[in-house]
Amino acid sequence: MDGLDHEDEWSDLSPLVAPGERDDETSLRPRTLDEFVGQPRVREQLQLVLQGATRRGAPPDHVLLSGPPGLGKTSLAMIIAAELGRPIRITSGPALERAGDLAAMLSNLVEGEVMFIDEIHRIARPAEEMLYLAMEDFRVDVVVGKGPGATSIPLEIAPFTLVGATTRSGSLTGPLRDRFGFTAHMEFYVPEDLEQVLRRSAVILGVDLRPDGAEEIAGRSRGTPRIANRLLRRVRDYAEVRADGAVDRAIARAALKVYDVDELGLDRLDRAVLSALVRSFGGGPVGVATLAVAVGEEQTTVEEVCEPYLVRAGMLARTPRGRVATALAWSHLGLTAPPDAPGWAAPTLFDE
């Protein structure tokens, strides 16, 4: 759903997304709050913010959307513009390297327009400082000239609504965070909501998705709609090539086995990390740099792609001495956990 985020928690099934795939991602985006599945608290709060602003005839407060990748932050930004009936201008934090880049965009905004900055925590400091004044007073100060002869020219800009998205809210500076009138934190989806997402996507893509097939895919989607939609497209390919096109539980399982996605949603790299940790280092503790070398990946890949889900799934523990495999990780690999593994419970007389 949130296809424009620049970081992804899960390593995709292929390093590149084909043009047709990108078109599919765009077509699967919900257009209104009523179409948006999940995040009930965020939807209710956002609806109140937008309806209140509409009744007052003024742009709503600036909105900050935070949470892991793939949960729908970009989709919500587009929905905000659609609900307000206003155009949206999209950019990203890394693209705003200079204050002049931001000033050019702000000066071209029309009244009431929505400006969306993805990964806003990565915006350059000079541009961020200019953004403070624009968010509060709807003006920017443009510096003309250099040295002692430089002058600052105030430039009025049209009232607008800034929507910022971040996967690392803790990386935002305090002054920037405080200038948002509404902050929403996106949570991971429960399987029931993911099944609803999959049913809607199946209708749009023309996939014959059976209830048990949707349940199987949702259970392997890491609580993330973007991943659920990707898996649905891969299962669709398998069903069309090796079956009659219908996606039931058996077809979903067979397809996801081909794509190395197991019953818990772990892919090849996830299992490689766990296997190295358990088999090569006895379950840890081991430093993440050493672990990355063992699996032949960059350290940042292990830290940003694998670790978040493995920790959330209870298979990996971060300790001051390094990463440690939990008892669940040993069990998932079909091995017996040592007594000192986190999460290990010794059998009692009452255990069979």
Rank of each mutant, 00 (worst) to 15 (best):
D2H: 08
G3K: 09
L4W: 10
H6W: 12
A18D: 15
G20A: 11
G20M: 00
E21F: 14
R22I: 09
D23N: 09
D24W: 13
P30D: 08
T32G: 03
F36G: 08
R41K: 11
V42R: 01
Q45A: 15
Q45I: 11
L46I: 08
Q47P: 05
V49L: 13
G52D: 14
P60H: 06
L65P: 08
G67L: 00
G70F: 08
S75M: 04
L76I: 09
A77R: 00
M78E: 14
A81Q: 03
A82W: 07
L84M: 07
R86W: 05
T91H: 09
S92C: 05
G100L: 06
G100H: 08
V110L: 15
E111D: 10
E113S: 14
E113N: 07
V114E: 13
F116H: 06
I117A: 07
E119I: 03
I120G: 09
I120M: 10
R122T: 06
A124G: 00
R125I: 05
P126S: 05
Y132R: 01
F138D: 13
V144I: 14
G145Q: 00
G147H: 07
A150K: 03
I153M: 15
A158V: 00
P159G: 11
L162V: 04
L162R: 06
V163Y: 10
T166F: 12
S169Q: 10
S171Q: 12
L172N: 02
G174D: 15
G174Q: 12
D178V: 01
G181V: 03
T183W: 06
A184D: 03
H185S: 15
E187T: 05
Y189T: 05
L194M: 10
E195T: 02
R199T: 09
I204T: 15
I204S: 15
G206C: 13
L209E: 14
L209D: 14
L209Y: 13
G213I: 06
S221M: 06
G223S: 09
G223Q: 02
R230H: 14
R230P: 05
L232P: 04
R234N: 13
D237W: 12
A239P: 05
A239T: 01
A243F: 09
D244F: 05
G245L: 09
A250K: 08
A250R: 10
A250T: 04
R253Q: 11
L256D: 04
L256H: 04
V258E: 15
Y259G: 03
G265Y: 00
D270Y: 07
L274Y: 01
S275E: 12
S275I: 01
L277S: 01
V278M: 04
G287V: 00
G287P: 00
V293F: 12
A294E: 07
G296C: 00
E303S: 11
E304Y: 05
V305Y: 01
P308G: 03
Y309E: 13
L310A: 02
R312V: 05
A313R: 05
M315Y: 01
R318P: 07
R318L: 14
V324E: 04
T326K: 10
H332R: 07
A337Y: 13
P338F: 09
P339H: 11
A346H: 09
F350A: 15
